[in-house]
Write a protein that binds this DNA or RNA. Structure first.
Lengths: 200, 200, 200, 200
DNA sequence: ACATAACCGAGACGGTACGTCAGGTCTTGAC
DNA sequence: GTCAAGACCTGACGTACCGTCTCGGTTATGT
């Protein structure tokens, strides 16, 4: 290996897992804002210094806990049409509201990405990994001729995720999986290939 | 009058303004996350206790500073067509990126709204005051027959603000005022009245 | 007179009394250490500024409340013998312990005299007014030939008040009016064994 | 050992000492009333939180500083007679007035014992440790037949310390080590005129 | 009679220190 | 070399009172 290990105790998987589990539990019980490294250490029985050895900050730890314990992979549907592909995806996306723990976590991570300069990049990478799925669905729609060939994939993807995050963060109106299909329908109308389309 | 004043020294406008100015300066210089009440007190020469007398928390103070000192009123255009009305509005909306101070503040406030339970409602109220402008433009478009009469105004408004906030917060792609018109054009295609439209 | 009064509203006796009463009540209810000018103002309905106009500090206010409302004049007995004069005086002195309010106040005032430079002199004056009574009893005893003509009145007075304050302040042993006569007897007789000594 | 140490950084003796030294210096320079934990922290370079970890309150810290840095052990003389034993002790006791720092500290601690409920007991324990020395001298005097076998040791001890504290706290008359022997003599002999009394 | 001026309540203000909390680092001794 | 334990410095929190200072309004003279 490149990282030469010259003897010594190996990293404890128990400690690693205990930290993630404790973080998930505390998120569940008390939400994100009251989550502290000290409480995670106390709950997990893992020393604070050990936590700092393996994670650079609270949000990075939480993101690992989220992607490992809390979250389910986003679906990558292939139903034959963009519209139904997106309907499946968005329905699943909106379903997060059924799980308060996930909602809290997503909101907390987004908040941290604003406050913690070092976390912006990791968070953006995670966001982009989810954007890539939608972008791929859209590209396939373009190839199939379902969508405008001049489509701005970036903006189109934002039209999926933007309103989702906006409602999640502001809660001015509820986010309902039952609305997902309608939202997609309305969107598609604007993205669809038209006779004289020459957008951008 | 309803607000009965029965004696007592009057609130110092100098102190009030000094606090808001100091907050704006510190935001400009060092960003949101390092902004503390103590620094605002030190910079403004106003006592910490006086600040706590008038503002319940950092974000409420910052929001007042933003709406008073930093921000310009959003435009309420009336050009004759929804599309150009929205184009004007969104262009102005996107122009915020030309002012790093405003970007920082908006991102900070959104973050606080996630972390500070008491701030959610004031923040939501402010967000809704801006949503109302767009909602009004859209309603006028519906009345004029430019837009689908069954339009879900709430979702349509989210299609304006959602992608805006999403890019502002994640910065996965730049927010460019020059793209505003194209974004609006693409959106309108989906919202426009169609012969057999019966969405929702 | 020297203090020329050229018109103007006269001092409100109601406010004056309300302050002293409120101070006494708060002392009774919560003790000395939690007594603040702000609470006295709130309780009495008298403005803080009015209190500061008439009293320089908390202890001076409390001392006035004590000597006016709380305390009884010390007796100045004249029974015919020093021993019984002192016995009467000391019994009354020790009786203060039957009144927790007075105990708290005395202890509080003594504490303030240590911490507040400006209060030392007023406090000392009050202490001396009580010392003068005992000194007078002792001087009469000397004149009558009951006591040593070379008696150091100052030290003798301290032998009366010193142990009293010491027990009041430290509470290492109880202060009991029933012990007063014995203490006086022991003082007068002395500690040394004499032919007919049978103290206690 | 009884005190099990299972890992953990050990308490820093430097920090411990620096706090006590800083407290003593500040007492020396500015007295007790202006002594604050914050100033001790600033002067010593030890964090406020570290100070609060080891001392529950300002007076407990000061008492440790006093007994460690400032004060000298009280003497426990054994000259062969109570009178001279006491004379030695009281002379040393009164000598405290030669050291303003000690006077301030004693007065401050006594004040705190009145204001801080939690400090009363520790303070009383310290007072009692000094009383025990005098009580022992007196008991030896009783055993030797020098003193009245029915002597109330408690009150007799108060006759030593009471006047001392009283003068220290009120300063109505000076406390002079040169007077110590005379005070003891008077105590022992008593106030009553006896055939051969020639006090002072 | 009425102006003057001291009084009074209310309460805002600049301060100081409090005691707490969490962050992130470092040290010790066990494994 | 990693781990649990926990001491350490740092910095900000939000609170409590302090003593001072406007305010607007009241009440006694004294001319």
């Amino acid at each position: 290996m490149s990282t030469e290990r010259r003897g010594g105790r190996t990293r404890s998987p128990e400690a690693h897992q205990a930290v993630l589990t404790a973080a998930a539990e505390l998120l569940e019980e008390h939400g994100y804002q009251t989550l502290t490294i000290e409480k995670i250490a106390a709950r997990s029985g893992v020393a604070k210094s050990t936590i700092y050895r393996w994670w650079r900050s609270r949000p990075e730890l939480v993101m690992e806990a989220y992607t490992q314990t809390v979250d389910r992979r986003m679906p990558e549907p292939d139903t034959g049409s963009v519209q139904s592909d997106l309907a499946v995806f968005v329905t699943e996306l909106y379903r997060v509201v059924k799980h308060p723990l996930r909602v809290r976590t997503l909101r907390g991570l987004m908040a941290e990405a604003q406050l913690d300069e070092d976390f912006r990049e990791p968070f953006r990478a995670w966001v982009n990994s989810r954007r890539a799925i939608v972008a791929h669905l859209l590209e396939r729609g373009v190839e199939r001729g379902e969508l405008d060939p001049g489509l701005d994939i970036g903006h189109a993807t934002d039209l999926i995720f933007g309103p989702f995050w906006y409602r999640l963060l502001v809660e001015h109106e509820p986010l309902d999986p039952a609305d997902a299909a309608a939202h997609v329908t309305r969107l598609i109308k604007g993205l669809r290939r038209t006779q004289g389309s020459e957008v951008k």
